[in-house]
Structure formats: structure tokens, C-alpha cells
């Protein structure tokens, strides 16, 4: 594995007017590492994710990314065109609501193929074969390739969204509550699938979730946020098994034990 991190975040803050989104967040993300950001609603985790993924411009601080050519670039100084290019090649973004990340009125195959076509693949047969392959990897039957995601169940849509993001072999994927809104057995399958793919492809991922079980299953490290600040960070097992901050202890102890 590489000896350099993939992403460096220093003192990132975002204010909405006077209101605090998140403040003074610093961390490094290494290739192949999965980082979970947990916290309750309104704790600033989605704001942080949107800043990292350049959907929002932070009020202060910097985020540097090591591009494929090993050059470190400050994300907020990229041109819009460079940023978009990065987002459709080297990054993925999995939305909580699959309808936000999919084109609901074009077929599943075209949803998967869009990124390939956007980066210049001009061979229909190849695009189609790749789409079939990826549908298989996310456990969608090949005969659904020409169906629109409107006719898919919630779990299938989410899996399709994952395939659509991973098809260009990104190095970093952002996920915003990827299992939110799915029922428990579907969540379990999706987590299993995600864990397999992340391991197999050596993806780095930043996952925002309020579900500690998701963090436990998928992430290597986690950060706990409260009121816009990171109050505790560390290896996932350490944080969950031996939480130090009172708030983290409260979070961990409020999981229902079945």
C-alpha cells in the first residue's frame, strides 16, 4: 500500500452565516481505508461530507487530495471542470436516496454506462458487457439491464447506485447514509456487499452514518461528531468498545441490544 495518505484535511470549518455547520476538522485518509463519521442529526456530519466532496465551499481550512499523478491539489482551488472530472473518474458519491444519484428514466445499463461514456468509452458492446458485469457484482439479474430503476426496489436501486459509482474504478467514495431507508435484512445484504467490494477494490471511503452498526461493520476508523466538532476519533473497535467521551458512551449505550 502507498506510504502517503490520499486525502489531508486541515482545520476545515463551515459556517452558515453565524450558525455553525462544522468547525476545525482535521484528519488524514489513507488509500484503502474506510472512515466512518457518526453523530446525531444536526451534528454537522453531512456538512462535513459536502465540504469534503466539494459540494460546499468551506468557510476556512483546506482539503488536499493526492491525484492519480501523485500531485497534491487543494480541492477548493480546482477549476469547476477539473472538479467535475475528478468526481466522475476518481471519486464516487453514494446518496442516501438513490433517486438523487441515479437517472430514474434511463435503463439500468445506461446508468452504469454513463460514467464510461463520459470518460470517452465509445464501444457499445464493451459498455454493455461492463454494465452486465457490474450488475452481477451488485447482485442485480442481467435481464434487468434494460429496465428503468423506477421499477426497482429500494435495495436494488441502492445497489445500482453503487455499481454506477464504482464502474470507473474510483479511489475514493463518499457515502451519505448508504443504508438509510432500507429495511434491516436488505441493509445487512447491502453492508455485506459493500464490505466485499471495498476490500476487493482497495477503495478508500468516507461514510456518514448515524447507525453505529454500519460503522462497526464497514469502517476501520471513525470520528464522532457533536455540535459541529469532532469529539472523539480512533480505530472503530476502540471507539465502540472503549468510548472515552461521555457523549460517545451515551451513543454506544443507546444501541438496542436484541
Amino acid at each position: 500500500m502507498s506510504e502517503q495518505p490520499l486525502l489531508r484535511v486541515e482545520g476545515l470549518s463551515k459556517y452558515y452565516g453565524n450558525r455553525l455547520g462544522c468547525t476545525d476538522v482535521s484528519f488524514e485518509l489513507w488509500p484503502g481505508e474506510v472512515l466512518a463519521i457518526v453523530g446525531e442529526s444536526g451534528s454537522g456530519k453531512t456538512t462535513l461530507l459536502n465540504c469534503l466532496s466539494t459540494h460546499l465551499e468551506p468557510s476556512s481550512g483546506r482539503t488536499e487530495y493526492r491525484m492519480r499523478d501523485e500531485v497534491w491539489r487543494n480541492l477548493y482551488e480546482l477549476s469547476e471542470a477539473e472538479r467535475r472530472f475528478l468526481m466522475r473518474t476518481d471519486w464516487g458519491f453514494v446518496h442516501q436516496n438513490p433517486a438523487d444519484g441515479l437517472r430514474m428514466t434511463v435503463s439500468a445499463g445506461a446508468n452504469v454506462g454513463e460514467r464510461l461514456m463520459a470518460v470517452g468509452d465509445r464501444h457499445y458492446g464493451h459498455i454493455r458487457d461492463t454494465a452486465v458485469d457490474w450488475l452481477g457484482r451488485v447482485e442485480i439479474a442481467a435481464d434487468r439491464i434494460d429496465d428503468q430503476p423506477r421499477s426497482f426496489s429500494g435495495g436494488m436501486r441502492q445497489r445500482l447506485q453503487i455499481a454506477r459509482n464504482l464502474v470507473t474504478g474510483p479511489r475514493l467514495v463518499f457515502m451519505d447514509e448508504p443504508t438509510g431507508g432500507l429495511d434491516v435484512s436488505v441493509q445487512a445484504r447491502l453492508l455485506d456487499l459493500l464490505r466485499g467490494l471495498v476490500g476487493e477494490l482497495g477503495l478508500a471511503a468516507i461514510i456518514v452514518t448515524h447507525d453505529l452498526a454500519v460503522a462497526r461493520l464497514l469502517s476501520h476508523r471513525m470520528m464522532v461528531m457533536k455540535d459541529g466538532r469532532v469529539i472523539e476519533a480512533g480505530l472503530t473497535d476502540r471507539v465502540l468498545d472503549d468510548p472515552r467521551e461521555p457523549y460517545t458512551q451515551l451513543l454506544v449505550s443507546s444501541i438496542l441490544q436484541v
Binding site: S107, G113, E114, M117, V119
Partner: peptide
Amino acid sequence: GLMHVKLYE
């Protein structure tokens, strides 16, 4: 990319 999506469809 979307233009090719149309042709793909």
C-alpha cells in the same frame, strides 16, 4: 456523457 446515454438507450 448524457448525449451518448441517449444513443445507448
